[in-house]
Amino acid sequence: MRSITAAKRKRRRHIRLWAVLVWLCVWQIASLCIGKEFLLVAPWRVVVRLWELGGTGDFWISIAWSLLRIGGGFLLGAAAGIFLAALSARFRRVEELLAPAMLAIKTIPVASFIILALIWFSSRNLSVLISFLMVLPVIYTNVLGGIRAADPQLLEMARVFRIPPLRRFRYIYTAQVLPFFRSGCTIALGLCWKSGIAAEVIGMPDGSIGEKLQQAKIYLATPDLFAWTAVIVCVSLAFEKGFLVLLGRLIQRVERM
């Protein structure tokens, strides 16, 4: 069973690699056909530029700066989402009160939030607020759905045996809500990176990835633009994978008896 699954996974990875190679070829051919680097840079030039940027301290500081703020916004949004979902599950009035606010956050364009936030606050921590706002409704909705979907038979069992609330949360709710939370995190992580970088591009806080992207636009430095975009994709994926692995370990530790 294990070997069949492993073989399937390996095959899927091969297909992915093959597809990536085809698209890289398409990109290379397209850039050769256009023949103007500032319109479409060749993939190998992006790799070279990335190598050059990697040798500078500024490159790593920018990544750390953006990672700290966007990651921080994500963690704050996730914590607030869990807390508010737990409150809403317990008190109907809280859910009713939060429903319009969550709907507003979900439907208002992120650009409106960014501009409003720039009017109200400085641009320095803008990406924290924006990624927080993007993450909050996703985690809130998913966790609330998970709590509502918790097995009523297990909850009845807990009631009859008078299992204290903390133990109920630790051993019953955690496992029931986890799949919902995990899928919420996967969506929210992608969202917070996209919106966080967008906020940095508009707000241009010093030393952020967004600032570098904006500078690349101003100076028509297309290799820089592509190189920084590749960095965003890699950092976002690494953050997502790292977070989900840490979450899994944390849950194992919490559920250990």
């Binding site: 038979q153 297990l154 009845e156 069992m157 009859v160 045996f161 008078r162 051993y171 019953i172 496992a175």
Partner: peptide
């Protein structure tokens, strides 16, 4: 109280 339900109701 404690109980054995018709279903096992195990985590």
């Amino acid at each position: 109280q404690s109980a054995v339900f018709q279903e096992d109701r195990l985590c």
